[in-house]
C-alpha cells in the first residue's frame, strides 16, 4: 500500500514541477482536508434545506396522530411549553402531555390525554424498553384502558389503594407507568390551571 503510493508520488514528481509544488507542500494535507470538510458541510446544508420542511411536517403529523389516538375527533392542536392543547372546531376538548417513568429496563414514555375536567381521557405508551412478553404488556389496552376516566388521586396500583390492577409478572413496569402518570398529572394540572386563568 505504502510502496504503491510512493511510486505514485514519484511519478507525479517526475511528470511536472507544477504538481510537485502542490502535492509536495507541507500544508497540502491540511488544505485538502479543509476543502473536503467545506464541501461536505455545504452538501449537508443543501440536503438539510431540501428536507427541513418535510421533516417538520412529519413531526407535526406525528403529534397530530398521537393526539388523534387519544381524542379521536381532534382537528387542531396548540403546543404549549410542555403540553399540548387539543381543539375541535376551535373549542378546547382536552390537554395532552408526555410522562416519563423509570421502568424495569429503562425509561418509559407515556402520552397522557386529559379531559377539560382534568380526568384522564386515555393514555398511550410511546416507547419502552421493558422485557418483551412481560413488561411490554403495559402497551396493551387491557392495562392502559384502566386509566380512562380516573382523576389523579385514583391513579395508583390497587394494592396501594388506587384503581389500577398491576400486570401479573410485571409489577415494576405497571408501577412505573402508574407512578409516572400520577406525578406528572399532579404537576400538569396546576400548570394548566394557572395558564387558563
Amino acid at each position: 500500500m505504502n510502496e504503491n503510493r510512493q511510486i505514485h508520488d514519484k511519478k507525479i514528481k517526475k511528470s511536472s514541477s507544477c504538481s510537485e509544488k502542490i502535492f509536495g507542500n507541507r500544508f497540502y494535507p491540511l488544505i485538502f482536508l479543509t476543502i473536503i470538510v467545506f464541501v461536505s458541510v455545504s452538501l449537508v446544508m443543501v440536503v438539510n434545506n431540501m428536507t427541513r420542511v418535510k421533516i417538520l411536517a412529519e413531526k407535526d403529523a406525528a403529534i397530530i396522530s398521537q393526539l388523534k389516538a387519544i381524542f379521536t375527533d381532534t382537528d387542531d392542536y396548540e403546543p404549549k411549553k410542555d403540553y399540548y392543547i387539543a381543539y375541535r372546531d376551535k373549542q378546547v376538548i382536552g390537554f395532552a402531555f408526555v410522562a416519563k417513568g423509570k421502568g424495569y429496563g429503562g425509561e418509559i414514555n407515556i402520552f397522557v390525554g386529559l379531559n377539560t375536567d382534568f380526568t384522564i381521557e386515555q393514555i398511550k405508551i410511546l416507547s419502552n424498553t421493558e422485557t418483551p412478553g412481560l413488561g411490554t404488556k403495559i402497551t396493551e389496552d387491557s392495562f392502559t384502558g384502566q386509566f380512562k376516566g380516573l382523576s389523579f388521586k385514583d391513579v395508583s396500583l390497587s394494592k396501594d389503594g388506587g384503581k389500577i390492577d398491576a400486570i401479573t409478572g410485571a409489577t415494576i413496569s405497571s408501577k412505573a407507568v402508574t407512578d409516572a402518570v400520577r406525578k406528572e398529572l399532579e404537576e400538569k394540572i396546576e400548570v394548566i390551571k394557572s395558564d387558563m386563568k
Binding site: 502535492f23 473536503i36 452538501l43 440536503v47 412529519e58
Partner: peptide
C-alpha cells in the same frame, strides 16, 4: 490527490457526510 497523511480523516468526513444525508432523508 488524497494526501497519505490525512487520508483517514478525509475518509471519515466523506463517510460522515453520506451518513448525515441518509439520516436526513430517512427522517423526512
Amino acid at each position: 490527490i488524497t494526501p497519505q497523511l490525512a487520508r483517514i480523516p478525509v475518509y471519515i468526513v466523506v463517510i460522515a457526510t453520506f451518513v448525515t444525508i441518509l439520516s436526513l432523508v430517512f427522517e423526512a
